[in-house]
Design a protein around this nucleic acid. Structure first.
Lengths: 127, 127
DNA sequence: CGGCATCCCATCCGATACTG
DNA sequence: CAGTATCGGATGGGATGCCG
C-alpha cells in the first residue's frame, strides 16, 4: 500500500499532477494488469474467489487476493464469508464500484474500437 | 523496453472470455502510474521533454523516456526534434491519442467526483 | 474453499555518469 | 536540452506448503 504521507493539513487545493491528486489516487489503485478486468467480471454480479481466479487466465491466487483487499479498502467491493464447510466467500461490487466499472466501460469500448489502429502502428514500427 | 523477449509467435493468448483482449492490449500500455497523466498533459497541446518531466511529481527522466517511446510505438504521440542548440524535442498527441485522452477524461472526472468516498472508505478501515 | 506465509527470482526503477 | 548506458537496490509476483 502506498498511501501518501499527509502533509500540512491546511491547503485543500491539490496540484493536478502531484501525488495526492484524485486521478493518481484512483490510478494507483486500478492501473494494473488485472484490476479493471476483475471489476468487469464483478459487474455481472457477485462472484466467488476461485470463480474470479479461473475466469482470468494467468491470474495467481496471491495477486487476486491483493487486488481484492485493495478494492475492499477503497469501498469498491464487499467481501462476504458464508459459514459453509468449506467456507464460501463472495465478492460483490458496491454502488461506488459499479459506477467506476461503468466509467471504465468507456475505456473498453475505446480499446475495441481502436485496437486495429494501435496494432497497425506497432507493425509500421516493426513490432 | 518492455517488449517480450520471447518471440514465440502463436502462444495461446488470454482467455476467450475476454472480448477484452483489445482492452488488455490498451491497458498494458496505459495502465501504469504515469501514462494517463502524461496523456492528460499533452491534451493541452505539444510539450517539451523536460516540461513534461517537471509537471509530474516524482516522474524520473528514465521512466518518462520509456513511456513516451511506448506511446510513440502505438501511434498515440509524435516526437519532433528541432535542430536548435541545444536540441528541442516536442511531443504531441496524434488524433488517436487525442481520442484516447478524451475517453480517459471519464476516468479523471470519476476520480474527482468520488475521491472523497474513497478516502473515507480508507479512513474507515484505519488507513 | 479461500486464504496466509515463505522462499526466491525477474523485472522495475532511481541514481549516476556520459553524450550529441 | 534530451537523451543513452550501466549498475545495484527495491519491488512484484510465481511456486509451494500449510491452515481454518
Amino acid at each position: 500500500m502506498e498511501t501518501t504521507p499527509s502533509p500540512t493539513p491546511d491547503a485543500p487545493r491539490w496540484n493536478p499532477y502531484s501525488a495526492d491528486c484524485p486521478t493518481r489516487v484512483v490510478l494507483d489503485r486500478i492501473a494494473d494488469k488485472w484490476t479493471v478486468l476483475i471489476l468487469g467480471l464483478l459487474g455481472d454480479g457477485p462472484k466467488r474467489f476461485n470463480q474470479l481466479r479461473k475466469s482470468v487466465d494467468g491470474l495467481s491466487q496471491k495477486v487476486l487476493t491483493q487486488i481484492l483487499r485493495g478494492l475492499e479498502t477503497d469501498g469498491l467491493v464487499t467481501r462476504t464469508a458464508f459459514p459453509t464447510v468449506p467456507v464460501t466467500v463472495e465478492y460483490e461490487l458496491t454502488p461506488l464500484g459499479h459506477s467506476l466499472r461503468e466509467t471504465l466501460d468507456g475505456v473498453r469500448l475505446w480499446a475495441e474500437a481502436n485496437i486495429e489502429a494501435i496494432l497497425e502502428a506497432r507493425k509500421a514500427k516493426g513490432m
